[in-house]
Design a protein around this nucleic acid. Sequence first.
DNA 1: CGTTCCTCCTGCTAGC
DNA 2: TGCTAGCAGGAGGAAC
Length: 305
Amino acid sequence: MPELPEVEVVRRGLAAHVVGRRISAATLTGARVARRHDAGPFDLADRLVDGQVLAADRRGKYLWLVVQTPAEDPQALVIHLGMSGQLLVEAADAPREKHLHATVDFADDGPQLRFVDQRTFGGLALTELIPDPYAEGHHSHGSHHSHGVPVPVRHIAPDPLEPAYDQPALVRLLKGRHTAIKRALLDQGKVSGVGNIYADEALWRARVHPLRETSALTKPALGRVLDHAAEVMREALGQGGTSFDSLYVNVNGASGYFDRSLHAYGREGEPCDRCGTPIRREAFMNRSSHYCPRCQPRPRGPRAR
DNA sequence: CGTTCCTCCTGCTAGC
DNA sequence: TGCTAGCAGGAGGAAC
């Protein structure tokens, strides 16, 4: 369940069902699930044993458990869901899912944590925690990642729902770049958490075409796009996230229902909720953009594609 | 250096 | 009915 609201729903599930428990065993099936863990799947599983889960944390679409292992400083079990990853809290004797790649058992004999991933773009890694490079900004309230951030999250920018997010600085950055606004929204090193659904929804709400150049938008217009991105993700979180099918579920297997509130994404050919013009879908960055051709006029000039 | 493109997977669906 | 092309919520790393 891949964008910020869906990942946050999962994080909350982990906070409720996994934090505070002691790991008794972990099993990783196949090498691919741990391909980002340099020392391999057996090392990862071994080092989790007897670890105490201190926290469930998130930045953008990256999720991690802070684990106090016996022999080391706290480590981060980094979990990225990719396109189709799920974390499920289930009884150990529940039927095994077809694409089950990892299980974590706990010393209390309560339910186990499972990582299920159809397309295997997601995965697990156990890494060091480092100080948050975005903490202690000149006027921010600092990081709410009190344990720091995992090494693989070093290059990920703060997301719009965390205190370290600095929108004025981001607006200045975008104003100086020659790139399409949608490409910038999807760049997790600039602002994290936004994926294809919420990028299209934010641009529809802001009435900005996905191909508009960031440098050609005014600073207030850039601010509006970012405000809408934050707002639409906040609203989606309030609805439990967006799910069109059972692939995108919380740790209890339940779907969110923000799909009912979408105005652009997945609505090709349907009338725009503002003006009635059919929503258009076109290829962009090996995926799709959905927009209203009337409310979100295509940029003109040499850079328009 | 910043920016753009390709690729890693499985499964479902629309269209022939 | 059966086949297959196309598409799906992501992102690292190569290539320019």
